[in-house]
Design a protein around this nucleic acid. Sequence first.
DNA 1: TTGACGCATGCCCATATGGGCATATGATGG
DNA 2: CCATCATATGCCCATATGGGCATGCGTCAA
Lengths: 129, 129
Amino acid sequence: MPIWAYDGVMARAATTSDAFNAIAEPQRREILLLLRSGERPVTDLARDLGMTQPQASKHLRVLREVGLVRVRGAGKQRLYGLDARGLRPVHEWVGGFERFWSESFDRLDEYVRDLEQARQEEPTDGYDQ
Amino acid sequence: MPIWAYDGVMARAATTSDAFNAIAEPQRREILLLLRSGERPVTDLARDLGMTQPQASKHLRVLREVGLVRVRGAGKQRLYGLDARGLRPVHEWVGGFERFWSESFDRLDEYVRDLEQARQEEPTDGYDQ
DNA sequence: TTGACGCATGCCCATATGGGCATATGATGG
DNA sequence: CCATCATATGCCCATATGGGCATGCGTCAA
């Protein structure tokens, strides 16, 4: 069902919606890493990752649906290959925060110190955390 | 419940487990983008993103739990601030695929062309896609 | 102390997994 | 056309959302 046709309660973003969701799954990330070495049949991947064949097939299907992987029939087998182009937008989005994590040694650390200090001087004790 | 203490059927990786899962949610990505401009109270964020306050609070909680956001009590309010350090590993992981999406004009395109060609010459018609 | 304001939570729903299994579907070699 | 290998799917479960709402908890000002 196309998401744009959906009208009811949306429980959660579908894992098949985009690369962000696809790589949120550890096992799928593992698969992508393995595929950097070249095309591989499902059974191979499943064995190397210690998962069942159906599991591997399902994860590969998700990866295929978001376009991170391509399939090619090779005789009796189906070879899965990496198509990393969909990861580029992800890399760029995350990269947009680069200057913020680089800042960790000045503004942020200072900010954290302020927090610690404030906590000791004035035991807020509010809410949680 | 700590995942390492979990013994039953794991339905899905918890969204609160790591940065990868946290940024899989579009709205949470929006929140992070807004926070690049500085600390903001929940209500502000909710208004700007067109979501209810409880919704914003919940997303912020997830972001807090994976460490992408920090809170600071400011009188009656609670100011949320960005802590992008957790995005660095994500950026690096995705960056590990850079050479593969850069390759798109030689090996990959060639590969895709081969696929197209093969499809026309030999109508495989197998499985789906 | 009492409101009022700002947030965090608790609950209920409907949904989409991800795993385990059994089985359908494809393709290949006889 | 049949047996067999390689995969993809269909189903059932238990789980973790994410949204909508109502409400509890904290903090501050009068």
